[in-house]
Simulated scan of single mutants.
Amino acid sequence: MKKRSFLVSSMTVILLLAACSDSNTREAEDEKNNTEETQQNETKDTSKKKDEDEKKSSQPYKALQPSEDAKPLKQKLSEKELKNMPESQTEGVDNSKRSVPVGQMLVKGADDQTDGPLKNNRLVAFYGHPNSENMGILGEMEPEAMMEKLKKQTQAYSDADPERPAIPTIELITTVAQRDPGPNGKFYRMTPEEDIEKYAKLAEKNNALLLLDIQLGTDSVMNQVKLIEKWLKLPYVHLAIDTEFRVEEGEVPGEDLGQVDGKEVQEAVEYLSEIVGKNDLPDKFVLVHQFTDGVLTNKDAVQPTDNVEVALNFDGWGASRDKQTLYRKFVRDDTSQYGGFKIFYNKDEPVLKPMDVVKLDPGPAIVNYQ
């Protein structure tokens, strides 16, 4: 009887152990499956986030690569180069050294938290309006011919400073200041939508950027930004503000010199920043034109965000030595992030060569031609 009881007990223990073993095996398999499923989900989430980040940060342009024989800029100027530049550019009026090394585009002490076009590239832009020869090269040439010339000019900058390949850019005036009030009573005329669309498609076709310029009249910066908002939502379109054409009631653009408060510009910068964030767009930039002291006040208010760069563009024309000196005054000592420099093919004496332009202090991130 005891023997039979012992056998029964032994069988019970064996069955219990087998059951526990099966249970442990199932639990281990379940845990393994759960772990694999979790890892797969994490991989999918990581991959999805990576794809989204890449999609957002991917800029829709192709910089023109430098020629094989292009040589990097030297960080110090030669004696001959120093001699050919104004003293205020080579040494400064109250500073015995350059503010930044030759070629650096960020002003001293600035940084760039974006993945915008200006971070590692220079922009070369043709400025104007398709229906006016007097307003720039866009009105002097047919679109395709203009684009070919723009690419050649852009290539010259890629070769002059190969560490910062240049991007062809079309700067299209989208609200044109007028000397009569016009139907809206605000002294500006909107460029026809079909013209804006034509140049938007031209830029996209050529892997270029489109910079939409507003001239304001008596209108506000934000009102005009909203007029062109649907194009600003395109990944390759950016904003430029012509400060001199913003006049007060009772004044006339072109007769009276206008003025924009930096606080208004900053409102546009932050609005564009919201557009970028809400629409998962690549980072953008705002270009602010200035050619004399009074046209832009409260410059300190104009600051970049984490997805919008800012550049202050010196617009003056005339003697190139004077322009280089004024670039220092208006850009090097006054902008918060990047500088721009405008060149007039028919008014500058002489027309600076790309190699001269990239050696300005700081190097212009945007060079526009009119």
Rank of each mutant, 00 (worst) to 15 (best):
187 F>P: 01
23 S>E: 12
299 K>L: 12
184 N>L: 03
271 Y>Q: 02
78 S>F: 07
359 K>V: 03
356 D>P: 02
130 P>R: 03
239 L>C: 09
336 S>C: 01
320 S>C: 05
357 V>K: 09
94 D>S: 11
346 N>F: 15
218 T>L: 04
311 A>E: 03
279 N>G: 03
274 E>I: 04
169 T>R: 04
79 E>Y: 06
33 N>K: 15
53 D>W: 08
164 R>Y: 15
53 D>A: 12
85 M>N: 10
370 Q>R: 09
117 P>F: 02
212 L>H: 06
358 V>C: 11
29 E>W: 14
70 A>V: 06
268 A>F: 05
351 V>L: 10
336 S>E: 09
317 W>Q: 14
94 D>T: 11
33 N>Q: 15
183 P>K: 02
49 K>M: 09
82 L>M: 03
236 Y>E: 04
58 S>T: 12
92 G>Q: 06
294 G>V: 06
242 D>F: 05
283 D>C: 07
233 K>C: 01
365 A>V: 06
226 K>W: 10
4 R>N: 07
50 K>S: 14
97 K>E: 10
347 K>N: 14
319 A>R: 13
179 R>D: 15
97 K>M: 03
244 E>P: 01
51 D>F: 10
322 D>Q: 14
334 D>Q: 15
227 L>H: 08
99 S>D: 08
170 I>M: 08
128 G>I: 06
92 G>F: 00
162 P>R: 05
363 G>H: 08
237 V>M: 10
315 D>P: 02
281 L>F: 00
61 Y>G: 01
125 A>S: 13
104 Q>W: 04
235 P>M: 10
348 D>V: 07
89 Q>F: 00
254 G>E: 02
71 K>H: 06
286 V>R: 01
265 V>I: 15
159 D>K: 03
41 N>F: 09
116 G>D: 01
99 S>T: 08
43 T>R: 13
273 S>M: 02
296 L>I: 08
18 A>L: 15
200 A>Q: 07
157 Y>W: 09
360 L>W: 06
121 N>Q: 10
346 N>C: 09
17 L>A: 14
361 D>G: 05
121 N>H: 15
213 D>Y: 02
234 L>C: 01
165 P>Y: 04
293 D>I: 08
186 K>M: 11
130 P>D: 02
225 V>N: 08
313 N>H: 14
166 A>Q: 10
159 D>S: 03
109 G>S: 10
12 T>K: 12
185 G>H: 03
216 L>C: 06
311 A>F: 08
